[in-house]
Nucleic acid binder design. Sequence first.
DNA 1: CACCGTCTTTACGGAATCCTTATAACGCGG
DNA 2: CCGCGTTATAAGGATTCCGTAAAGACGGTG
Lengths: 230, 230
Amino acid sequence: MTGKPLILVVDDEVQIQRFLRHALDAAGYRVEPAMDAASALRAWSVLKPDLMILDLGLPDMNGKTVVGEIRQRSDLPIIVLSAHDQEQEKIAALDLGANDFIAKPFGIGELLARIRVCLRGTRPAQGAEDVLRRGDLVIDIPAHRVEAAGKPVRLTPREFDLLVLLARHPGRVMTHRQILTRIWGPAHTEDTPYLRVFIGQLRQKLEANPSDPALILTEPGVGYRMVDGV
Amino acid sequence: MTGKPLILVVDDEVQIQRFLRHALDAAGYRVEPAMDAASALRAWSVLKPDLMILDLGLPDMNGKTVVGEIRQRSDLPIIVLSAHDQEQEKIAALDLGANDFIAKPFGIGELLARIRVCLRGTRPAQGAEDVLRRGDLVIDIPAHRVEAAGKPVRLTPREFDLLVLLARHPGRVMTHRQILTRIWGPAHTEDTPYLRVFIGQLRQKLEANPSDPALILTEPGVGYRMVDGV
DNA sequence: CACCGTCTTTACGGAATCCTTATAACGCGG
DNA sequence: CCGCGTTATAAGGATTCCGTAAAGACGGTG
């Protein structure tokens, strides 16, 4: 995706095409027009655009079919336009895989802002970073995998959640209550019997010397803390 | 993120809080309420929710400030509500880092659909390739054909969709929920009975040793993951 | 209408995980 | 040195989760 992002504009109305072409061009995007679904799919598979703006009312094919077709094969961000502001239509388009929906008439400023959101890529539902490193520990969150001292380590789901929680707040003490509410839900906020067990299992699997922990430290009477080493 | 996604609802109007709590609960989410910006930020840092719904009109702080604060430290998906349908306000909120914007009054169905979009986790275009290769596996998407170890394999449509979905995110764990929403639609997001069946059939057809899978790995309690080997 | 392939549902054995409980070790103040 | 509270470790049973097989439901086709 070097240089200007390429946007595929699919709409059969000539005025809208011209309007969008000018506005997007002025905003610094490259624009590829398509007047019907067939040429849109062709242009998509050849040009590999960075984003698609799609009008639902096309002459040759239902716009929703286009969304489905593309979503089967790619994660291309799709912004759907529609003349009608029907809620059912919005829901259908979004659930088929569209990333956003705007009803006509729309403000060009809003459209540009929503384009920026799609291209910005602030998406993952987890948190700040995808891969955390703490000492010789590597936590790959999307892949759900952990390495300690270069060796891959098998962690159970709870262990993994607990480790991620601690690693996300390096150097900071997480109280028993905080840990319990975050991982076991606000119900089990009282007793801490099995929290100890899981901490122990983590140390067993991750620490070089489990009986003298260097990664997960105990803060007596308060909680646990992960070292904030690089 | 064990079980149901947790949604942080920030709004100072009691009726809206109650309305959203019921609707979101019925839709299968856990809800954490917050009436003002300060408690919202506190709840966010402690609970690490999966998504936030934020009203711009708060008593103690401008909602945009909240967006900025959070966006500095996390990629948490944020859906902004506002009483006014001012375009300038939409643009400002989106450019500050909000993922979506809905003006009141809104349809609950549309809100739920936009929540699903945010939680679906679609990343911006990462190249729509026509032919994927994973180990000795070759997936020709336009031709709808698959080869394993040089031999062509017959797959049913669902099996093919599932395989493509996994192969397009190599090394990354796809949760049960993500797989179900993207292949069977957002309706069947709960049950995982037949997902197991299809995974089993895929392994039966693709793996050299189906009882010891090397391509499609299972992440207990979370989902499935395709190896990211070249 | 019968056939076929696919999709969906259900049931069950086996494995892994989670939670509980019991016991030992540690730190601290008196 | 002793008692107390907190923490670490180990082992057991209960529960959940996964994989597999098989049978019914559905839709398209000849």
